[in-house]
């Protein structure tokens, strides 16, 4: 190989990579309306491995055209060591473009997370295992499905009862409904949470834990998403059932969501930038309305 070729080839490789990335990264097929609530959802992400970085890169690419300002984290935010260096390698570095763009991460805790994560500032949990916050006409509820004690159940009951926003979105690690064969539905939690969700008209629930993407058909009127493959992946683990509306288990993935008026648009995007699922949910009519 000549000297000239040696100098040129890395440039060519980078250019080719960028070109291929821009080709693969389809612009988000969401309406991208001004004033809408835009957010991304990632679960089971904190491996520090290459796939996590590639998903994060894809998120940054999507962010360029769909400027979401919130990322909800569905637990298992970090695997293995959880030292300060790990927080850099498994969170701050991969998501640096988003963090520097002012995107706010709001975490929930999974079974691989150390409890001290609630005090890690960039997760914005303010030392709380479970908490709520508002974006526009959407109220989010982050729960701790590791320790769903009576106090937390009373809290979510009261917080949902008092919520006046149009949309109520809950997220936590363990899925109430899932058709992945490794874990599947957390029925023990479902029996406790579902009646409360139904009572107060929760619209959508996001979870992780199973390292796949799955959208479920509305269960008793509530929409459920499993998005636990933003770092980890359990390839071929889906066993779709009649509950399954769409599923993807061939690559890592994340979600972007837009809430505009009475509609919620969603898109699930693979590590390679392919849209694996998308659609729109109309806000459910509540009995009281």
């Amino acid at each position: 190989m000549t000297l000239a070729k040696r100098r040129i080839s890395p440039v060519l490789i980078v250019a080719a990579a960028l070109a291929s990335a821009s080709l693969l990264a389809q612009p988000a097929s969401l309406p991208n309306r001004s004033g809408s609530v835009k957010f991304a959802a990632i679960g089971d992400n904190g491996t520090g491995d290459r796939p996590q970085y590639e998903v994060a890169q894809q998120m940054a690419t999507v962010h360029a055209t769909f400027p979401f300002d919130l990322v909800i984290m569905l637990g298992d935010n970090m695997y293995g060591g959880q030292s300060p260096a790990d927080f850099v390698r498994k969170f701050e570095q991969p998501y640096a473009p988003l963090l520097s763009a002012g995107v706010k991460f709001q975490a929930s805790i999974g079974n691989h997370d150390r409890p001290e994560q609630v005090s890690y500032k960039p997760y914005n949990m303010n030392g709380q295992r479970y908490y709520t916050y508002v974006r526009g006409q959407v109220r989010f509820f982050a729960l701790d499905s590791n320790l769903l004690d009576r106090k937390q159940l009373e809290w979510i009951d009261g917080a949902l009862r008092d919520a006046r926003e149009d949309w109520k979105i809950c997220y936590f690690h363990h899925p109430l409904y899932s058709n992945a064969s490794r874990h599947g539905s957390s029925v023990d939690l479902r029996v406790l949470l579902e009646p409360i969700f139904l009572k107060y008209g929760v619209n959508v629930v996001f979870s992780g834990h199973d390292h796949v993407y799955e959208r479920l058909k509305p269960q008793k009127g509530i929409y459920y998403f499993v998005s636990g493959a933003a770092g980890q992946l359990r390839k071929g683990n889906m066993e779709p059932s009649e509950q399954t509306a769409a599923a993807f288990d061939q690559d890592q993935s994340f979600m972007v969501v837009e809430v505009a008026g009475s509609e919620l648009f969603f898109q699930s995007i693979s590590r390679a930038g392919r849209t694996v699922d998308s659609g729109v949910i109309r806000r459910q009519t509540r009995v009281s309305e």
Partner: peptide, 9 residues
């Protein structure tokens, strides 16, 4: 010690 859920299981 543990409420219902994966940790208790």
């Amino acid at each position: 010690l543990l409420p219902p859920g994966q940790l208790r299981s």
